[in-house]
Design a protein around this nucleic acid. Structure first.
Lengths: 133, 133
DNA sequence: GTAAGGCTTCCCATGATGGGAGGGTCAAGG
DNA sequence: CCTTGACCCTCCCATCATGGGAAGCCTTAC
């Protein structure tokens, strides 16, 4: 299977497959001796799908590297996997809370803004406010 | 006022002040003829505080450029400011929803994971799952 | 034989931020 | 007068994951 087909089968772009290989997230693919094309098998595609799914859950490449190695290790303690997941959940929750606070503030400011032809604007007034940053 | 003092007064790092100047978000600061140091006044600091506050609400530099120009324009229609804010709120909401979905999925997987010495792990099982990406 | 499409590598850009090197400037104190 | 420390300057590099695009080789089909 060439890289294009592996990309289609896994949902990871050819560009990203090469990148993941370069940074060592996935192993170096075999090469055809004739044309130097990368060659993938079903195992590789499964690995790429794993990466794809983990990315879609927001894991960083670094976290995925760890998850992949735990996945390969039949003796892994599930504790370690769970710990990575929990840490990531906390990270997501923190970022969500931060953005939620931004959105709440903005909704309130927007609610108070007439949004017409007049120049008076509580949104700008808030941004220009001297106090609390 | 030198850049260090302006940084302290505005909460924007000296590094970022130079960057904002370079990309044209703020005007080029006057320079002392003697030593070529940038020179800031209260007006500049107010502008930097505006930028700082807008960044803390998650606006991109591009959006802030627009907000700054509306702020300077006494004839601005508040409609335009509100439109920018509303778009940004929607953007935030979309990103929050996305991260919320990730967190929900992960919480469920984590809840089902024993997190002990045994290798069985529904989190890895989900990542390795062949179906729906 | 040629055209299309796939593969290769290499370089560049993104967005906002920080780190650090190498070198000029200034003020205070010995 | 000289040193020291605290500024300031510019320039380059790194982050993180992703895509764009160029130049060039290979293969397949017509």
């Amino acid at each position: 299977m060439n890289i294009g087909e592996a990309a289609r089968a896994s949902g990871v772009s050819a560009k990203m497959i090469r990148y993941y290989e370069e940074i060592g997230l996935i192993g170096r693919a075999d090469r055809s001796a004739q044309n130097n094309y990368r060659s993938f098998d079903a195992r590789d595609v499964n690995e790429l799908r794993f990466v794809k799914r983990a990315r879609s859950l927001g894991f960083s490449v670094k976290e995925i590297a760890r998850l992949l190695s735990l996945w390969r290790d039949r003796q892994r303690p599930s504790r370690e996997v769970k710990a990575i997941a929990e840490r990531h959940i906390q990270d997501l929750e923190a970022r969500i809370a931060e953005m939620q606070a931004m959105a709440d503030t903005l909704r309130e400011l927007s609610r108070c803004c007439a949004g017409d032809d007049r120049p008076d604007c509580p949104i700008l007034a808030d941004l220009a406010r001297v106090g609390a940053q």
